[in-house]
Amino acid sequence: MKDIIVENICKSFPKEHIQALDDINIEVEKGELFGLIGPDGAGKTTLFRILTTLLLADSGSAIVNGSDVVKDYKAIRRKVGYMPGKFSLYQDLSVEENLSFFATIFNTSIKENYDLIKDIYEHIEPFKNRRAGALSGGMKQKLALCCALIHRPEVLFLDEPTTGVDTVSRKEFWDMLKRLKMEGITIIVSTPYMDEANLCERIALMQKGKILSVNTPTHIKSSFPDPLFAIKTEHMIKLLADLRAIPEIKSVHSFGEYHHITLNEPSENELQLLHQTLANDKHEAIDIKKIEPEIEDCFIQLMSN
């Protein structure tokens, strides 16, 4: 069963000359963990705001949990949870007051749905009397998630929940999402971190209002068109410049410890020639190996098309 159906959605902001969304089509299954992956300006937030009925599209249609985002907006607001990218809780209410406020708005109580938020709330419960404004980033994030969940939504929208958050807290957050998924909640989450794509069941890669690709992370990675090689020598900055100057090389991008390259005509022979060229350029400890692409390789390749 489809829980979210987005058809031909367009949205522009004429004053700013921005086409925020350009003919977006997405379907999300009931209970799916779906990721919108893309940098700032991709249109992730605009799409979230349309799906949570906070913004009207210029054209196209969208159904969330069986309700139309324009005609049935009131029904949707009761059924979805939304955690905006910008912290939007009441800074001068305490942790507990915020949570109880959101519960009351949705005609429920903390007690009624406590089992759903228990695992997350326990992290912040020792600070339940602290004002939300005085919480650290990680704790604000957890409180915001609790507030978005307290009415047991059918669909949960999380807009960049891990941006600016360190590796350890990011891992914790994704563990929480996996547990929520087991409760049968449909989760649609956006992130600028390409490595988090692998934690989603399906993803949409987005850039400048367009969708570059929608599929499972595995399928997107296996659709990478060329053999991909990782290459390393003792002088990585020089290597980058040297590789860019070699005409047989189709693409070169740095990826942490290695540079990733594709060749115009990949073959054993070409690789040996490359090795020789680099040795002639005084590179030492040359290490070239074939690798499987990461989501970021795919994103860059799709962007460059």
Partner: peptide, 15 residues
């Protein structure tokens, strides 16, 4: 955090 939220190609150009 100079490259926060920037696309992967621009991030590399920044470096």
């Amino acid at each position: 955090e100079p490259t926060g939220g920037v696309d992967p190609i621009t991030r590399r150009q920044f470096w």
